[in-house]
Write a protein that binds this DNA or RNA. Sequence first.
DNA 1: CAAAAGTGATAGTAATACTATTATATTTGC
DNA 2: GCAAATATAATAGTATTACTATCACTTTTG
Lengths: 244, 244
Amino acid sequence: MIVILLYLQTNILGMINLLSNLKIAVPEKIFIKDPESSDLGKRIVEHSILLIDEIGFDSFTFKKLGAKIGSNESSIYRYFDSKHKLLLYLTSWYWAWIEYQMVFATHNVPDYNDQLFKAIEVVTREIKEDVAFTHINEVVLNRIIINEYSKSYLTKEVDSENKEGYFVVYKRVVKRLSEIINNVDSDYEFPSSLASTIVEGSLHQHFLKAHFSSITDCGKDVTPTEFFLNLTQKVLKTTTNGTK
Amino acid sequence: MIVILLYLQTNILGMINLLSNLKIAVPEKIFIKDPESSDLGKRIVEHSILLIDEIGFDSFTFKKLGAKIGSNESSIYRYFDSKHKLLLYLTSWYWAWIEYQMVFATHNVPDYNDQLFKAIEVVTREIKEDVAFTHINEVVLNRIIINEYSKSYLTKEVDSENKEGYFVVYKRVVKRLSEIINNVDSDYEFPSSLASTIVEGSLHQHFLKAHFSSITDCGKDVTPTEFFLNLTQKVLKTTTNGTK
DNA sequence: CAAAAGTGATAGTAATACTATTATATTTGC
DNA sequence: GCAAATATAATAGTATTACTATCACTTTTG
């Protein structure tokens, strides 16, 4: 793993500036050559996000991507073993980015309830604005996570890939959330299941909103964030002042 | 749609016998020729379930299936347009089977809370025993639903396929559950989202149990059923006697 | 300035996801 | 009982996919 470089500045201008100094850490075995290390690598990542969003992961090929970035299929294979590995890269990047926001949003927040509120917001919200400081379009990447994330682990190779550490970032996000849940109500018996339900369930609600609107209440007026905040508040005994 | 033939006998010997008289209804456009109408069709369905479970849907091909049942690839194409349509068939069958159990389990139950309890049990439990009255192995099919169901709708064609009615059965299961939720607590604002979260979330918890055990509490001692029953009880204001 | 590393172009392979055609076997309707 | 219809099997063929391998060329770097 590349170590996250946390430049903790005294006068932070905001997350956007901070993020431009921060390298999102992705498990190293996922790629052959770090796409962040070259111009071509960055263009592969940038345009793979756009192309997967456009035609879907199933129709996506390295040949088509090559055509789009004016490069060759064989060059892309020098960065990633397969399109599956590229998806693992993109999803790991996304969850590392979410994790960063979660840590940032809950850091120095004294009240555990407030921490939980903010953490749920971070993992359940729809990304609507591109940070625009990197080559990665987070709005589009968020859509890809909603539409394709499950495919990265619903394979016959999950267990071996899990051993290789390809899903650590995702699991860490869920674990952080479950710890916050545990801080709010240590008597609650299922903090991990609740956390994983919120993270994955929120992706699902976003999907339903867009495609199966008849089986969700989320839509114009209600967001998945509201639904899961309401749910969590009811499930946990939130002590009125759960100060750190 | 083929109409469900509900033989409501006066002396019901149990669900198993009833099921052997019942034809599970699958939207007709999913198949070219009804696999229930011939011996070959039934063998296609029976062994596709076993083969998908064995090698995974991604590696599954009609050629391999043909080899397994001593038939020809081209003959299988006479029943299903594509392996995607076959998956839609299997998943529709599964949800129709679950729907049937849900209706059966809640039928004539006077108390709404009891209805909810039973409905959640039906949609969240792991199938451990094969009914063994049909060619369909429900234990194995349940595993396929856990591992492959998302792939049936996470496609670029969802919207058009949804219009064709390929997902009606699933949506009906969620809607039935959300109606029961609504009966228990009509003040609750998100019955559809809660219902869809229970149905899909339970599949997810079963998956985590098997592959990412560190981010779920479900395992040896705790079942997804317990988790979601506990959650639902807390989320809803269950009036002590919500009689019909 | 030479070696190394990165990129591009081309070719080739086995498998996939089909379609089309023809032959043969089985069922059915009169 | 037999012809017609239907079902199944066998074979061949297509475009595409998901790669691997090789070689040429260009850029970087020690």
